[in-house]
């Protein structure tokens, strides 16, 4: 860590996050995220070489259930909030080139 965050890096992260940001947003986030990343350097004070990471506090491993067919949302309800649908499917822009 410690190397300064550049606008180019922020641009790359925005692409990874699928966020279209304006130039002004990129500038603002470069400054603000640099501040936050500077702050979290604090954690480097801690010797964590012998500490197991804790992803979760709950004392639960895998929770299994039988694989059985159960009622689920009717298609009309599942499609009811879709930005674009043909009544049966979610419609998205064409992904594959015409062959």
């Amino acid at each position: 860590m410690a190397e300064p965050l550049t606008k180019e890096t922020v641009k790359k992260v925005a692409h990874l996050a699928r966020l279209k940001l304006s130039d002004a947003e990129l500038d603002l986030f470069t400054t603000q995220l640099s501040q936050v990343l500077g702050y979290v350097e604090l954690l480097n004070e801690l010797d964590t070489s012998a500490v197991e990471p804790m992803a979760h506090v709950a004392d639960i491993a895998n929770v299994f259930r039988d694989d059985e067919v159960r009622p689920s949302l009717p298609r009309a309800a599942a499609l009811s909030n879709a930005p674009k649908t043909d009544g049966e499917y979610f419609v998205v822009p064409q992904i594959l080139e015409e062959g």
Binding site: L43, L46, V51, E52, P53, M54, A55
Partner: peptide, 15 residues
């Protein structure tokens, strides 16, 4: 490792 994993370890110390 430097950020997310480090934070998960710190989390255990806090707990």
């Amino acid at each position: 490792d430097a950020y997310y994993l480090k934070a998960l370890k710190a989390r255990r110390l806090i707990r």
